[in-house]
Design a protein around this nucleic acid. Structure first.
Lengths: 239, 239
DNA sequence: AGCGAACTGGGTACAGTGTTCGCAATATCG
DNA sequence: CGATATTGCGAACACTGTACCCAGTTCGCT
């Protein structure tokens, strides 16, 4: 009989042979450390092994494929949210949730893109889901109403964070600041505006102020979140 | 002097030597074909070259790095939206935009995850942005108001589509249907509910009906979109 | 018309990737 | 005290992107 395909259902180690030198948490933590410092592409089995001071293929004693490592890393990061308590009321609760998710994602920019894929949630993720649902305590909503609200909210947060990370991650990968990058673009922007084919876009490029503000990302998120929460409110019973 | 770093600013080919056997469109189309059929991981320089019947490194005559190929592919896909006309009114307009974006993303599931990264928009992307802005024609909004609305909307669409693709892409990568996957999970779900640590989550897992509906994704998107548009309406002048 | 410059096609090579297989050393259970 | 399960790990395989060449082709200019 093969091992259980879900890593969280496999015992961390057997009872017979030698005690393993490391544990899943070590592997996860090493992966997170590398990804934070050098990006997700730097996270290879060889690199993690080097970080732990073991042989490369020894990792396969803790994990059955690289995807497992990524799941471990995801749950490790969600563990940072342990200890969170939510304010009273669904709106402040969801607001807090959205901000915490965003902060976590920005602290670990490699995380959001991993969201693709059938997630097998580890204990920390499950705990977070439970906390998230508690934002509706005492409101007497049925399960589908809660799901609809949470799905919409997290779609917005995920999408916004991914867009934000575009800038930031590209900066890290290429080692160019936003200004150096603009420099490198050279005549591309002007050539777009000068072509006359995109009058509305040209007007926005000239007149919009948001893109030039230093805290543009924060303000856009705040503004978008307010809109989304208003939208949710309109569909909740009572309010 | 080095070539211009933005591919759209480089001439497609010089005027001197032999006529190139292919063009950028060929490279882009080959990439899209491969990605649609076998996933983005199958898109390698060697594979594209084989598809075109050329030598691998000949591709570097059309493109200066693999990232350029991905940009070409993105713009190629956006070209599918040419010919779109929007209905009158900002709400029907944005609704149409959201649905078209989603359909395109689902037709090319490898596209949304590429959204990370400073995008250099090609001609088709620029055209789409112009169309998008035209949804507000005659409303006398300032540039920042339009940006706020569009940023929020596209964050939601991107996030939702990414979540949807989780299922679908994992299915393609692993070759397992949703049912086979559930089977493989085995006792994991029940063990979560049985642990007693997640009462709210357990209730949702039991009572929610949305996750079991065949058209759950469509309905969730529709419902979320309605909420987001309501939220946008609340912040637009006049309405 | 003829020549040099610009350009295209493509082979070779290199450093890296995830993972399978096999084997020696070791700790626990019956 | 075996028998058995488990750990650590090196070797090997089939991939990846792309820098560096060199030969052959075609245009622009004199």
């Amino acid at each position: 009989m093969p091992d259980h395909p879900v890593i969280w259902m496999r015992p961390e180690h057997g009872t017979r042979g030698p005690k393993p030198t490391h544990g899943r948490r070590d592997v996860a933590a090493a992966g997170v450390r590398i990804a934070d410092a050098e990006g997700i592409d730097a996270v290879s089995m060889r690199r993690i092994a080097a970080e732990l001071g073991t042989g490369t293929t020894s990792l396969y004693r803790y994990v059955s494929k690289k995807d497992d490592v990524l799941e471990l890393m995801r749950d490790e990061v969600m563990g940072e949210l342990r200890g969170t308590t939510l304010p009273a009321g669904w709106r402040p609760g969801l607001r807090t949730i959205a901000f915490l998710l965003r902060e976590t994602a920005l602290r670990h920019p490699w995380l959001p893109p991993l969201t693709s894929g059938r997630a097998n949630h580890g204990p920390n993720s499950l705990w977070w889901m439970e906390l998230t649902l508690s934002a509706f305590d005492g409101m007497d909503l049925d399960a589908d109403e809660m799901l609809a609200a949470l799905t919409t909210l997290s779609a917005f947060v995920l999408g916004h964070v991914l867009a934000e990370l575009g800038d930031r991650e590209a900066a890290r990968r290429t080692g160019l600041t936003h200004e150096q990058w603009m420099e490198q673009q050279g005549e591309y922007g002007p050539s777009i505006m000068g072509s006359g084919r995109y009058p509305r876009l040209t007007r926005v490029m000239i007149e919009a102020e948001t893109p030039h503000a230093a805290d543009r990302q924060d303000r856009q998120f705040e503004a978008g979140l307010a809109r989304v929460l208003d939208g949710l409110a309109a569909h909740l019973p009572g309010n």
